[in-house]
Amino acid sequence: MNIFRLAGDMTHLLSVLVLLLKIHTIKSCAGISLKTQELYAVVFATRYLDIFTSYISPYNTMMKLIFLGSSFSIVWYMRYHKIVRRSYDKDQDTFRPYILMLPCLILALLINEKFTFKEISTSFFLFVMWTFSLYLEAVAILPQLVMLQRTRNIDNLTGQYVFLLGAYRALYILNWIYRYFTEEHFVHWITWISGLVQTLLYADFFYYYFQSWKNNVKLQLPA
């Protein structure tokens, strides 16, 4: 564990808490994309399949449970909570998740660290699911970014949520650079490339977020 990775995990945790805070306290999910939240629930479900079979540390297990619990409860709130669901604007949240999930699944079958298709074993299945979750996480924010461009006035909590979500993966990139130089054989091209793509997708959001912070004006993304 290094400072970049810890900072990344804490930033990721904070992003989830900001969103839960918004939904739980003001009982509103205005401006939040349910599609992105559902994609994140799938990301965590497919990445943490090994939560019961492989034990790494109390921290690792606890964080996995927090991310699984929070992502599924956010989806539950937005779908079924009688007050929160009213503030969900489904007409603005039109991105079709399957056009993201299918290519990620096909890509995970073709490009993963195992590469060997012949051994259809549980470990191969775990590798494919884990790789799928990496690719899916890289693009899971797209429905949310599309929705932000359509929602004219982005409220502060939503802006902070997206900012923290992008920042966490940027910190992970620093963590991968650090581990590459300090550990033997630490090479994970698949993780690095999908993490880089993920962070680059936030590039324009970061730019407008920084501008709004610097000029102290409301955050607005160009249509």
């Binding site: 492989s54 660290e113 775990l126 994970h188």
Partner: peptide
């Protein structure tokens, strides 16, 4: 290299 080595990160 088994599954654990590669997946110690969240």
């Amino acid at each position: 290299r088994d599954y654990i080595d590669d997946h110690d990160e969240l």
